[in-house]
Amino acid sequence: NKAHSQPSGGRAPIGYPGMTGMSDAGNFGGNNFMPINGLTAIQNQVLNLIKACPRPEGLNFQDLKSQLQHMSVSAVKQAVDFLSNEGHIYSTVDDDHFKSTDAD
């Protein structure tokens, strides 16, 4: 009276591929910055500047541009666009003034 046991629940050999192939993947594409918290470097800079602005109406676009002279206007605009889309910043008195939602 032998039970025919089948080792069905055996060990499944799960190979762990481990993406160790590339250590410290370099950022080769010039405008593809490393995302830190889901934001690119440029978006982070813009967000930080807006956060740092003490004025109640927020930072205006002119100031933003002049503080980010190494970036093109369109790049700054894009970052602002993205950040407001995500809800990190919002426009205040007009479309040129931005305030951060993170720092209240």
């Binding site: 426009s91 008195v93 305030k99």
Partner: peptide, 20 residues
């Protein structure tokens, strides 16, 4: 200035929706 409040509220909603 209602506009600011509204924008802020909208932004916070977007942020909240993102974080869910």
């Amino acid at each position: 200035l209602v506009r600011i409040q509204r924008n802020k509220a909208a932004a916070l909603l977007r942020l909240a929706a993102r974080n869910v």
